[in-house]
């Protein structure tokens, strides 16, 4: 469904990715792991259409996305991809419900309809109580749940998550991860999560290990 074909990317003199090829199936949950500086985030950004590779192709449902013009790419990202950032990256001036509705409003959905859909997603992630609260009033775990709801609200094909839980040492982090993955599994949404934590990776169906910007020979891909 989502494919990287010989993708390379260089920052200055640093080769961040060297001819990386991989394929992610519909509904598959994949962990991208490896030491820091191995190219995990760069790979995620290339797959998500945030960064353009220098060479190679990124293909979603048979269509090359790395060659799209910016406007097409933005539209595709809004429609097909959701992103959960490590620190939530929610808009502090807005309420939880407004934050979740935001991607729908960007997609030109009617405001009342968008707010109703947002409310459903907050309920699915057990944070209905927070709907009218501003982000600053929420606990860390509640924020993460709101961020997950926002990533999933458009019914994307793929959700990208960069260190989605921060730390698993609190059981709260684990609950957020389970909420994300259970919901994604139920909706057949693929998840690509970047993590340095093996215990987070163990929640995935499969692991892709990066070393020095490449998938080592013999490693699973």
């Amino acid at each position: 469904m989502l494919e990287a074909r010989n993708v390379s990317k260089t920052y200055g003199r640093t080769k961040a990715l060297a001819e990386v090829s991989l394929e992610i199936a519909e509904g598959e949950i994949v962990a991208v792991t490896g030491p820091s500086g191995a190219g995990k985030s760069t790979l995620m950004h290339c797959l998500a259409g945030v960064v353009r590779p220098e060479s190679g192709e990124v293909v979603l449902d048979g269509r090359r996305i790395d060659t799209l013009v910016e406007a097409e790419l933005t539209a595709l990202r809004r429609e097909s991809f959701g992103i959960v950032f490590q620190f939530g990256e929610l808009v502090p001036e807005l309420t939880a419900a407004e934050n979740v509705a935001l991607p729908l409003l960007f997609n030109r959905r009617d405001r009342r309809e968008a707010m109703a859909t947002a409310a459903e997603w907050l309920a699915r992630l057990n944070v209905s109580d927070c709907a009218d609260q501003r982000i600053g009033e929420l606990s860390g775990g509640q924020r993460q749940r709101v961020a997950v709801a926002r990533a999933l609200v458009t019914g994307p094909r793929v959700v990208f998550a960069d260190e989605p839980t921060g730390s698993l040492d609190s059981t709260g982090g684990e609950q957020v991860l389970r909420a994300l993955l259970d919901t994604a599994r139920a909706d057949r949404t693929a998840v690509v999560m970047v993590t340095h934590d093996n215990r987070v990776a163990a929640y995935a169906d499969r692991e892709i290990v990066l070393r020095d910007g490449a998938v080592p020979a013999g490693a699973p891909r």
Binding site: E207, P216, A219
Partner: peptide, 19 residues
């Protein structure tokens, strides 16, 4: 190093079962 890469996979497979 080759052994360690394979052992790593075996460990992670077991971690997936436990999870």
């Amino acid at each position: 190093d080759g052994f360690l890469m394979r052992q790593r996979e075996a460990h992670l497979a077991r971690m997936r079962e436990l999870t």
